[in-house]
Simulated assay, not measured.
Amino acid sequence: MTIAPENFRATLNDTELERLLESSEQLSYQPDDEIDWDAPLDPTKYGLNPEWSTLYGTRLWSEMSEEQRIALTRHEVASIMSTGIWFETLLQHLILRSQYSAPYGGSEFRWALTEIADECRHSLMFSKTCAKLDASDYRPQRYVHELARLLKNVANGEISYGCILVAEEILDVMQRDWLRGEDVLDEVRTTSKIHVVEEARHMKFARMEIVDYLKGVSPTRRRVSAYVIAAAATFIVREMVSKDVYANVGLPRERAIAEAKANTHHHNLMRMSCVHLMDFLSEAGLLTPAAMRMYRSVHML
């Protein structure tokens, strides 16, 4: 199913696109200049704010030693970054497809290539961070990986940019907390700062694209798009922290999975991180009853 060929769209505001391009020129980072990849990790610091751990506040967390907590958060952040690499690879494919027939001299085309360049740098810095953390190469489950392969080959229009937006919005709130965490590894704080600053532009562009693609569409198309975006969001959230992280740090796997699944503290953090996203989806007419059920299933709503 292909949604909305490009020649049926209105042209995005060139002034806004030029502002994004100017911002990218003035405020972008080179991770290799910001991070000392050879410096030893601080053994006392977490991979992410302890409050963002999937087990924080559970009975198992209270039984864990400080070393286990630090190790768990490092594997959790490595899993989240690995999921980020997976999804950034997918979204680059989506953006390239959307621009395949675009005017090559246009500001939208130039912005799209700028965003892809940003995503390549982000994936490289996430990859280097995971290697420095010496964490396992976490991947989505095989069936999710294959569903995403289908999505990147058939999605278009507001579905493409809706999927991009939900993934980036969820990570944005997490990383804003991580970059302020004095007990978080410097490497994670710096990568979070870079990602937050540069993804703010990407999210603005995604919102612009979604609104543009939805102008004058039928109610049926809007419902279908809302459902596909919500389905993609649920898979992204479920795959962010691999179930393998628990055994990899010496925790009882099944007990850890059960306690994480029932962790209301983490559920509340997820809902908090999605407030602005849900507001936007509602305004865009993409928060249908069917989509809301899916978001609630992963505590995004």
Rank of each mutant, 00 (worst) to 15 (best):
E6C: 05
E169M: 12
P219D: 09
A233S: 10
W61D: 02
M294V: 05
L72V: 04
A206E: 01
A284G: 04
N153A: 09
H276P: 00
T15G: 01
D244H: 06
Y138R: 04
D33S: 10
W111F: 12
S62N: 13
V197K: 02
S101W: 10
R139Q: 15
T191Y: 00
V241W: 09
Y56M: 07
E6I: 11
L41Y: 13
W178M: 14
R293A: 12
Q68P: 09
I236R: 04
E88N: 07
Q92T: 12
M240W: 05
C130Y: 03
L113P: 01
C274G: 06
K152M: 14
Y138T: 02
H265N: 12
S127N: 14
N13V: 01
N7K: 14
M208P: 02
R142S: 08
Q26L: 13
V166M: 08
A200G: 13
D134C: 09
G285E: 09
S28E: 12
E259T: 13
A247C: 05
R223A: 14
Q99K: 09
I95Q: 10
A39C: 01
S101N: 14
E22F: 00
R69F: 08
G84Y: 04
A233E: 02
R110G: 01
Y295V: 02
E198A: 08
R271K: 11
I236K: 05
S62F: 02
T11M: 10
M270V: 05
R271C: 01
H276V: 07
D186E: 15
A4R: 12
C163D: 00
N13M: 03
T129E: 01
I194V: 11
K45F: 06
Y104F: 12
K243R: 14
S136M: 08
A256T: 03
T54G: 11
N156H: 13
L94M: 14
T73F: 13
G162Y: 01
E119R: 05
R19F: 07
T15D: 06
S218R: 12
P103Q: 15
E146H: 13
M270D: 00
E25K: 13
S65M: 07
T73N: 06
A78G: 10
C274K: 07
D177S: 12
R253N: 03
E34T: 06
L269W: 09
M125S: 05
T114E: 05
T191I: 15
R222Q: 13
R189D: 02
E76V: 10
Y213L: 06
I164Q: 00
E108P: 00
M272E: 07
F87T: 08
H265C: 02
C130S: 04
V228R: 09
E51W: 07
R201F: 02
L90R: 02
V224P: 00
H202S: 05
D183C: 03
Y100G: 04
E259L: 13
S242C: 09
S98T: 00
A112N: 06
S53C: 10
D38Y: 08
V196H: 07
R121G: 07
R19T: 06
C274R: 10
A135Q: 10
C274M: 15
